Simulated assay, not measured.
Amino acid sequence: MWSNSPMETYAFAKRMGENLSGGEVLALDGDLGAGKTVFVQGLAAGLGISEAVTSPTFTLVQEYRGGRLPLFHFDVYRIGDPEEMFEIGFSEYLSGGGVTVVEWASLIRDWMPEHTTWIEISYAGENARDITIKNAENSREK
């Protein structure tokens, strides 16, 4: 998917969020400033979440429960050891009936469940982004 602006990235993710049913795990990767958090903001809007969505860089996880499904938003950029994910109850979030999104998920690739959908957001120009979505089968070999 090609996005020419943050608004297009947001709109694409919002449509995706509108079609989620719970239990999905989305892994987001891309350079700093590529639009991962904008993507999560759109996803949250598609889930009916109206509160402000920010990157949980220093808190590791933000929970949003104001929509039709809960959203569990992780940012593992600053994680020191993948074991920290399980110390905070990562597996419980995965089975919590909501949508789990992990920014910088490649840092904990081996800890992500097999049914993870991998989303790579790459720079394709000043405001343009290339958004690539892969299912678990074609992303594990990276």
Rank of each mutant, 00 (worst) to 15 (best):
P6V: 00
P6A: 12
P6E: 15
M7Q: 15
E8R: 03
E8D: 11
T9D: 12
Y10N: 02
Y10G: 01
A11Y: 08
M16F: 11
G17M: 06
L20W: 07
L20C: 08
L20T: 12
S21A: 13
L26I: 06
L28V: 05
L28C: 06
G30T: 06
A34K: 00
K36N: 13
V38W: 05
V38A: 04
F39S: 11
V40I: 02
V40G: 05
V40E: 06
G42A: 08
L43G: 05
A44T: 11
A44P: 08
A45M: 12
L47A: 04
L47Y: 03
L47G: 01
I49K: 02
V53E: 13
T54P: 14
T54Q: 15
S55C: 05
T57F: 12
F58P: 14
T59Q: 10
Q62P: 00
E63V: 01
F72Y: 15
V76L: 02
Y77F: 14
R78T: 07
R78K: 07
I79D: 10
I79R: 00
I79V: 13
E83N: 10
E84R: 00
F90I: 09
E92S: 14
S95D: 14
G96C: 08
G96S: 15
G98C: 09
V99D: 08
V99M: 01
V99R: 00
V102N: 05
E103L: 02
E103F: 01
W104G: 10
W104M: 06
W104A: 11
A105D: 08
A105S: 04
A105V: 05
L107M: 09
L107T: 01
I108P: 07
R109M: 14
W111R: 12
W111D: 12
M112G: 01
P113H: 07
E114W: 01
T116C: 07
W118D: 02
W118K: 01
I119R: 00
I121S: 05
G125A: 02
E126V: 03
D130I: 04
D130C: 01
I131S: 06
E137K: 07
N138Y: 00
S139K: 01
S139L: 03
R140A: 13
E141Y: 06
K142Q: 14
K142N: 15
